[in-house]
Simulated scan of single mutants.
Amino acid sequence: MKNLAGKKSKFRVNNMIHVPEVRVILGDGHQQIMKTQEALRQAQKEGLDLIEIQPNAKPPVCRIVDYGKFLYEQDKRDKEQKKKQKASSVKEVRFHPNTDTHDFDFKAAHAEEFLKKGDKVRATVVFLGRSIIYTDQGYALLERLSERLSSVAKPEGPAKLEGKNLYVFYAPDKAKIVALERKEKQEKDAEQKLLAAEREERLKKMKDAEEKRNAEQESSNS
């Protein structure tokens, strides 16, 4: 058991725990409410530390583990979480109220790809000059976009108009993305099987035609 007196820690450990009793998570996953002094003796007996992991619970929840190993695992989890947060970013696609169909489809496809990769998307309709009078077209465009992206995302609330920008945020829907990717894979596999069958059929016809020609040639020679 480590003596941590005078050391800063975001967790209360060993003699830093002053409550009369604690709920201890045991090694097999079971929980047991124990007097704090009893839990400390148990930790000392095992050569480990008593660490308070949920101070606001009643009674506080503790684990009996090696403090150094616990901090290492905690730091590892924190880094993984930060890595995931960093990997996800917000991408933006911009439209105008009079965006044509080709441009709309092109930008919607980009938004779809961003969402499939786990990024959020901000879709913005920019009103230049007097085009602000066409806000209805902007709302209609974003409704079309929401319908287009419904297989991979969901809007985070209604569209908002700020100044001359009308925007809405889309968050990736992981369940829908997985289902869509599974469907696309099945369709691709089916297409490949069909192409393979057609290729095999062509080869068979070529072989049959060649055998027929050879048979006719042998017949004429005889």
Rank of each mutant, 00 (worst) to 15 (best):
M1F: 08
A5P: 00
G6I: 13
S9R: 11
S9C: 13
R12Y: 05
N14L: 08
N15H: 15
N15Y: 06
H18P: 01
V19F: 14
E21H: 14
R23G: 01
R23D: 07
R23V: 02
V24G: 00
Q31P: 00
Q37L: 14
E38Q: 15
E38T: 15
A39D: 00
R41M: 11
R41P: 04
R41W: 07
A43P: 01
K45G: 05
E46L: 15
D49T: 14
D49V: 14
E52P: 07
I53A: 06
I53F: 13
P55V: 03
P59W: 11
P60Q: 07
V65M: 09
V65W: 04
D66N: 11
D66R: 08
Y67V: 04
G68Q: 08
K69Q: 09
F70Q: 00
Y72N: 08
Q74R: 08
D75H: 14
K76L: 09
D78M: 15
Q85V: 05
A87N: 12
V90K: 08
V93Q: 06
R94V: 02
R94S: 13
F95W: 01
F95V: 04
P97I: 04
T99N: 03
D103K: 01
F104C: 02
F104R: 15
K107R: 15
A109E: 11
E112G: 07
F114S: 02
V125P: 00
F127A: 02
G129K: 01
R130I: 05
I133P: 03
G138Y: 03
A140H: 12
L145G: 01
L145K: 05
E147I: 15
L149C: 01
S150E: 13
V152A: 06
A153S: 12
K154W: 12
P155Q: 14
E156C: 02
G157T: 04
G157L: 08
P158T: 02
A159C: 11
K160N: 03
K160L: 12
E162T: 07
E162V: 05
E162S: 10
N165D: 10
N165S: 11
N165C: 08
L166W: 07
L166P: 01
Y167S: 13
Y170V: 09
A171L: 12
P172A: 03
D173M: 06
D173V: 08
K174V: 15
V178C: 04
A179W: 11
R182H: 12
E184R: 09
K185T: 04
Q186S: 04
K188W: 04
D189P: 00
D189E: 14
E191F: 14
E191D: 06
K193F: 07
A197W: 03
A197T: 10
R199N: 13
E201I: 07
L203M: 05
K207D: 10
A209M: 06
E211K: 15
K212S: 06
R213C: 02
R213Q: 04
N214G: 03
A215E: 07
Q217S: 09
E218L: 14
E218T: 07
N221P: 00
